[in-house]
Design a binder for these strands. Structure first.
Lengths: 356, 356
DNA sequence: TGGTCTATAGCAAACGTTTGCCAAAAATCG
DNA sequence: CGATTTTTGGCAAACGTTTGCTATAGACCA
């Protein structure tokens, strides 16, 4: 029946499609079709082939297939090397959510870190131009570009997540940063707050622009002056979110007229800020209300529990993958280049009306 | 000079090695050698080839190479699907550290989530047996195994990280959990504590065994009875670290004779535990000392700042990659299957002598 | 100067798939 | 029952590299 040399311990990554074909008594091409396109081959033969494949523990070689069809099944996610303020908290969730969606579509997820050096840029470009990856999800605002090669014209479908890069023509999945911050600021105003302290991430960053914009909009809507809000942070060199909060606490101490409400653009900075402020003898929310951005689980267990705007990362991940898969399926839809997933304000005890 | 059809907008992922060869006026094989093994080809020719390659923006096709040499340059990291207690905090660092080391060695990092369902197991096995990956770093205690195929005999080099799986014959990179917990427990004893509360992760888990063992060793060394420590947690179904802490606080409330020191096996559970305990009116460290495990940055900003045993994740990541790369380089060294990287106790205000 | 050796470059055969094309067999139809 | 269509399976040519082997051309030695 099987005229193999000596079919016994056929383990190890050994079984080839040819082996399956031989065992099933058919041609290689038939095996290929049976596996990929079941309806192209007789049910009887297919059964034989499947049995043979199973018996041999056959697993198709992905690289051979990839080479032949000219496409890989790997998607790369480009993470900012220095995980900027808020993002580090939510990376595991993002990864998990994206990976799960991708696998369902038959894709795999590869990690690429985009540092500020040329090496990492070159590396990413090699991945893109070397046919290793089929598409990319990018969480950074910078598109790698070296020696004339640019990710932008690599021909790869790219979806941006968290940051709006629709200006660059990239499909973008973001949350409604501006609106969310505007709403929470409005709520603070409603509670009676009139002087605000805004903790910025890297200045000019999309998130900074949007979120600060949200604050200003709320102030304007309430007939308050722009002067009602003071900024802290905004350094251009990346730093840990916690460091930003610490420094902001110092800045706060130096203010003549103390704000009564703080809007932080990440949970990290809010947490370290609160810690330092409390150490300085102030009380939250009695002396100062605090709200932040991200929705890290840890906020629930701060003292006091922190109000935060929750980024729907899992949903955003799913959406990003869906867009990417659509793009891969040739259904180019250049119409909607920006998908907004609504965030959710979680109100906790860190917010109260100002004293007096 | 260049007798190409019309060499102008030669962008897109188009340039092949054949193109480079034609432009440089040499054979394909020469190009290949010039790029991979520079000393095998004349300096003059090499210069021409490099110039041509650059001009065309040539990037070698990774799948073709992989197919030919029978090896991929992708390493997969297997993450436990339900990120168990402590781990979620440190994943981004782990990933970053591992990825950086891998890239230096010319490898890429692919993510694989190992959930508790067969699908994810099968998926990982396909990756392994399909030649897609060259090696694996595993952060889970379970080796995928389905239909007779098992990761263990996939022929892939595997390194375990965080968990000691040297029993299974896997190179393992761990921290000195037992010793670290023993030391900190001894320190608590020295401060005068006699009744302890231990917050467990999944019972029987390597970390649980080691860390709880550390507590017991310290008790014994001090001539105290095993009864001096009460356990909480240890449920087998995975749950968020924060949930464990919340539940532990309930358990604590039910204890007749209150412990004076808490040893938590992750920062997450310590944080939520402390939060609940404080809400119940107890004060840290006056009523209760707390120390935990992981070394998350957020601990510094808890109130009070939490003492924690810092896992040297970056170092462990580097070590794991190094071991893996060694294994790939055929230098099989089955001697030392367990690498211990020392953790670091960070003492903060959450620890004090017991009140009276 | 003839012979031997070494450096350099080319030819062509892999690697394990997929797939266009064709042949045989089976099914359908007039 | 012959002619036409449909199903089914096989052959062989790709896909873009790497690499063993071979051929050429200098270099070196006697």
């Amino acid at each position: 029946m099987n005229k193999n040399k000596d079919v016994v311990g056929e383990d190890q990554s050994g079984a080839l499609m040819a082996d399956v074909a031989r065992l099933a008594g058919v041609a290689i091409s038939t095996v290929s079709r049976a596996l990929a396109n079941p309806r192209r081959v007789n049910e009887k033969t297919r059964a034989k082939i499947n049995a043979a494949a199973k018996q041999l523990g056959y697993t198709p070689n992905a690289m051979a297939r990839g080479l032949r069809v000219g496409k890989s099944n790997i998607i790369m996610i480009i993470l900012p090397g220095s995980l900027y303020y808020g993002v580090s908290q939510i990376i595991p969730q993002v990864l998990q959510s994206i990976n799960k969606s991708l696998i369902q579509g038959g894709y795999n997820l590869m990690i690429a870190n985009l540092d500020r050096d040329e090496i990492s840029e070159r590396h990413i470009l090699d991945l893109a131009f070397g046919g290793s990856v089929r598409g990319a999800i990018i969480l950074s605002s910078k598109l790698p570009e070296v020696d004339g090669r640019s990710l932008a014209n690599s021909g790869l479908p790219i979806v941006s997540m968290l940051l709006d890069m629709s200006d660059a023509g990239l499909q973008s999945v973001v949350t409604n940063d501006r609106e969310a911050v505007r709403d929470v600021t409005a709520e603070l105003i409603r509670l009676g707050h009139r002087r605000f302290f805004y903790l910025a991430g890297p200045e000019g960053n999309y998130h900074d622009v949007e979120r600060y914009g949200g604050v200003l909009e709320a102030l304007e809507a309430a007939g308050l002056s722009k002067e009602a809000v003071r900024r802290s942070g905004g350094r251009l060199d990346y730093q840990h979110g916690f460091d930003i909060g610490v420094q902001a606490a110092d800045d706060f101490a130096g203010l003549a007229e103390k704000p009564t409400a703080v809007i932080a653009t990440s949970d990290d900075m809010a947490i370290s800020f609160v810690s330092r402020i409390q150490r300085a003898g102030l009380s939250i929310p009695d002396d100062l209300s605090v709200v932040s951005f991200d929705g890290s689980p840890v906020c629930e267990f701060s003292s006091p529990p922190l109000s935060t705007i929750e980024q729907p990362v899992e949903e955003m991940g799913r959406a990003a993958v869906e867009l990417l898969l659509d793009a891969l399926g040739q259904r180019q839809n250049p119409d909607c280049v920006r998908t907004v997933v609504r965030s959710k304000l979680i109100l906790r005890e860190s917010i109260a009306p100002p004293k007096i």
